[in-house]
Amino acid sequence: MYTQALNTSDADDRHIEDAARAAAFQARIDAEERIEPNDWMPAAYRKTLTRQISQHAHSEIVGMLPEGNWITRAPSLRRKAALLAKVQDECGHGLYLYAAAETLGASREELVDLMLSGKAKYSSIFNYPTLTWADIGVIGWLVDGAAIMNQIPLCRCSYGPYARAMIRVCKEESFHQRQGYEIMVTLARGTEEQKAMAQDALNRWWWPVLMMFGPPDQASQHSDTSTRWKIKRFSNDELRQKFVDATVPQAQYLGLTIPDPGMKQNEAGHWEYSAIDWDEFKQVLAGNGPCNRDRMAARRKAHDEGAWVREAAEAYAEKRRHRQVAQAAE
């Protein structure tokens, strides 16, 4: 009887210990304490966050491509400077986020490799093309607008490094949305052709933007634990509704029509939208969107063509280290 206990005690103790630690961990989360990198955390919490933060980082980096497409063709120096600054910010967001993910134990290099190999996902929205200048207006207004809706609650996420990265990101995002809306106002006040261009861009981006918030609540697989761990503070549908309610009056001001004839305001004042085509969403996530192959090819090309720079920098640093060692020995 005793030996039997001994035989099993190892695994059992660990299990009991983990259960106790997990309970203490959850109590810290419930008390709104922030979890920091060296604190104990359940393996699943670490894994969920590593996946979420790195996917968020990949999205910022891939997200530079559709807008980068228009930097050299911006209609004025003012617009060009603003767009360049915005795209630089997105790069910065990607780097803050990789750094946050790294505190969980992954390296940036391996996370980037996962993205380049197609194993890691990034936001579906960046697989749509930017066909006209109006698309740059719509991206700032709606894509960054939707990102802000998502990111503001993440500033209170239970994981400290992620929350802090989000605070920096949110401070910078507000300029992104405003410069996009300014482009839309200019087009909406312009010629018939410009107005038509603005409307066409809105028509093409509206539904993909609504998909940015992710699958409907009944179908979302990660939500429950993420909510319990306070990584997620609002459901996909709640955020989507907030976004739609905030956006409708902005579209009305522009004199543009949201491409959803069935949309109506309910008694509570919320705008009810029609059914979203989740098949399209699944297709884009599965790699079959209009630009998936293009985006991956562009990222791989940049990575490969930058290899010599990384190697040269490393070789130079190595040479300097040797020289310092040699000088110290003299």
Binding site: S107, E109, E110, D113, K119, R310, A313, E314
Partner: peptide, 9 residues
């Protein structure tokens, strides 16, 4: 399933 293809900086 990750291959460390890129050296760490």
């Amino acid at each position: 399933g990750t291959v460390m293809a890129t050296p760490n900086t």
